[in-house]
Structures are given as structure tokens and as C-alpha cells.
């Protein structure tokens, strides 16, 4: 199997592509090492805030890629599950006195369950129907958070949210979230290497053929949606401690497109892709701040160009570069 993604292969990911971007031992160690020293390099709260935001985005992007890249289901409602995780866990802590960790678990579960329910409801749909349905779900979730003031405080917001005990220091909070990201990555990798991964790949490639093979598409779609949404919910549960305040606007439907962009730009259907995409798209608007008013124009332009001219995303570019390096060394 070639490492260089040809346009055709990148377009419809071959079912054999079930080891996308697996980091080897060296790669894993290097990545973990970089993650470990980053907060020591960036010593100010702004830089560390950026690291935390980046880690949260990595988790979200991984979750979405499971649904989108590996199960082939177009989900435009990622922000909703992020929000569900955030609000459920925070409200449990604030209103019901639940401890942080159980609340986090319940928030993750809630998001996962909602994702599964959405998938089951829209089970007959494919393609853009499902996309708009998920977007509609995101709109409704946002509106519920906004209007159910007696529960969520709506636009008035929830203030004074603190990180879990022992993690109030931003460096430790970053390590916690980064550790979660690593766990999610490892878990997804294991999942995809298992027979489940093959089933999802079959579902992605051709639903009708998969059904003819006896795969219950409905159940596996719901499964992928549920797991991917749970991952988003996990990120959502970790977010409020960092932000300190919780308002529905942080989960506006349009934010789903931000996560989608991270997955696409990073490289859809790979594991390294969402990580790269999340990191780059978290840093890019900040680094572009120096440009001033033209910042977002440049961002939009960059997004468009990357999508148009880099079919495999950043991950694809990485692998082409790596392959070229290997060829030069070999020949």
C-alpha cells in the first residue's frame, strides 16, 4: 500500500487505510516529550491558555473525525455535544453538588447518548440530509441552552467556575487535558484497529453493500455518532474550568464548522490529521494577530487554498514529504 495518497485514493479512502498515521514508538515519544515541555517554554497565562485551547480542540477534532472520516457520516453539529458536555457537567457540580470527576463522566455520557439518539432518529438519512439534520440539532441545542434560563441562566451565563481540585494551576490543567487527548487518541486507535474499525470502514465506503454483508448499518452509525459525540462531550466537560464562565454563545452552531475545518485541513480519515489540524487552526488566528485587521481574511484565504490544493490535508502533505525523504535516502 503506497504511502503517497494519490488523488483518487485520497478521495475515497481505501478500506485498507486502517493504519493512518500511526505514530511509531519514536514518534509517540517525541510527541509526548514536546507536550510535556510546552507549558514550561510558554510561561505566561496567555500562551498557556492557548495550549489548553489547542488541547481541547484536538480532542474535539478526534471525536469528529471518528464520525466523519472513519464512519463516513457528515456531522455538522459537533458544537452541540461540546456544549452538552460543558453544561451537564457544570450544572451537576453547581446545582447538585456532584464531584467534578463523576460530573465529567456524566457529561460525557450525556453527550454520547444524545449523539446516539440523533443518529437513530436520522438513521434513514445520508449525505447532506444528515448534515443539515445535525446542524438543526445544533441550533436547537443552542436555543435550549439560551432560553431555558431557569436551568442554565441562559445569556446571563454561569460565573465563577473553577477547575477541579488540584488542577487550578494552568500548567497542571494543561497536562490533565493533554493526557485526556492522548488517552482519546490511543483509545480510538485501538478501536479502529479492531474489527469495529473494519466495520466502520465498510459502512463508510458503501452502505448498501455493507448491509448486504449483514452489517446492521443503523446500529453502527449510532455507535460511531455516540462515541464521537461522547468524545466531544469529554472536551466540553474540561472546558468550563479553563474558561471560568459558561455562556451559550460559546457553543453557537457556527462553531461546528471550526471543528470541521480542523478535521478537513488536518486530513480526514487519519488520526494524525485532526491533531495537526487542531494545532494549526488554533495557533493560526493568534499568530496572525500581528497582521491586524486583515487577519481573518488571510485565515479564510488560507483555509480555502489548503482545501483546494491539498487533498490529503496536512497529514497528506506530511506523508508525501516523509515518503520523498525516504526515497531520497534510498535512491
Amino acid at each position: 500500500m503506497s504511502d503517497v495518497p494519490s488523488p483518487v485514493a485520497a478521495a475515497s479512502l481505501p478500506a485498507a487505510e486502517c493504519r493512518p498515521g500511526w505514530p511509531g514508538r519514536a514518534g509517540a515519544a517525541a510527541t509526548l516529550g514536546i507536550v510535556a515541555i510546552l507549558p514550561l517554554v510558554l510561561r505566561d497565562s496567555y500562551g498557556r491558555g492557548l495550549l489548553i485551547a489547542g488541547a481541547l480542540n484536538v480532542i474535539q477534532a478526534l471525536g469528529l473525525d471518528l464520525i466523519l472520516g472513519f464512519a463516513g457520516q457528515l456531522d455538522l453539529g459537533a458544537a452541540a455535544f461540546y456544549g452538552i458536555g460543558a453544561y451537564v457537567s457544570t450544572l451537576l457540580v453547581m446545582l447538585a453538588g456532584v464531584g467534578f470527576w463523576p460530573a465529567l463522566a456524566l457529561g460525557t455520557l450525556a453527550a454520547g447518548v444524545m449523539g446516539g439518539v440523533l443518529a437513530l432518529l436520522t438513521v434513514r438519512l445520508r449525505g447532506h440530509y444528515l448534515a443539515i439534520a445535525s446542524l438543526g440539532f445544533a441550533v436547537i441545542t443552542y436555543q435550549v441552552l439560551l432560553n431555558w434560563i431557569s436551568l442554565t441562566q441562559g445569556p446571563l451565563g454561569l460565573y465563577g467556575i473553577t477547575p477541579p481540585a488540584g488542577f487550578t494551576d494552568p500548567v497542571r490543567l494543561f497536562y490533565l487535558i493533554a493526557a485526556c487527548a492522548v488517552l482519546v487518541f490511543a483509545a480510538l486507535r485501538a478501536l479502529l484497529a479492531s474489527p469495529v474499525g473494519a466495520t466502520l470502514a465498510a459502512l463508510r465506503e458503501d452502505e448498501i453493500s455493507a448491509a448486504s454483508l449483514g452489517i446492521d448499518c443503523r446500529r453502527w452509525k449510532a455507535f460511531a455518532f455516540a462515541v464521537g459525540s461522547a468524545v466531544a462531550g469529554l472536551a466540553g466537560g474540561l472546558y468550563p474550568g479553563f474558561a471560568g464562565t459558561l455562556v451559550p454563545d460559546a457553543f453557537a452552531p457556527a462553531d461546528s464548522f471550526g471543528v470541521l475545518a480542523m478535521v478537513i485541513v488536518g486530513g480526514i480519515g487519519t488520526l494524525r490529521g485532526p491533531v495537526l489540524g487542531a494545532v494549526v487552526l488554533t495557533l493560526a488566528p493568534e499568530l496572525l494577530r500581528g497582521i491586524g485587521d486583515a487577519r481573518m481574511i488571510v485565515y479564510g484565504l488560507a483555509l480555502t487554498l489548503v482545501v483546494l490544493f491539498m487533498p490529503g490535508g496536512l497529514d497528506g502533505a506530511w506523508r508525501m514529504a516523509a515518503a520523498r525523504l525516504r526515497r531520497n535516502q534510498a535512491g
Partner: peptide, 19 residues
Amino acid sequence: GSELRPLIATIGVSVMLEN
């Protein structure tokens, strides 16, 4: 191939136009 790429590209265009 990927039917998503034009979609995301238009998101980029949208950001450019708005800003």
C-alpha cells in the same frame, strides 16, 4: 472525490467575504 472539500472551501470563502 470528497464531497466535503468544496463545502469547506466555501466556508473559507465565506470568512473572506465577511471579513
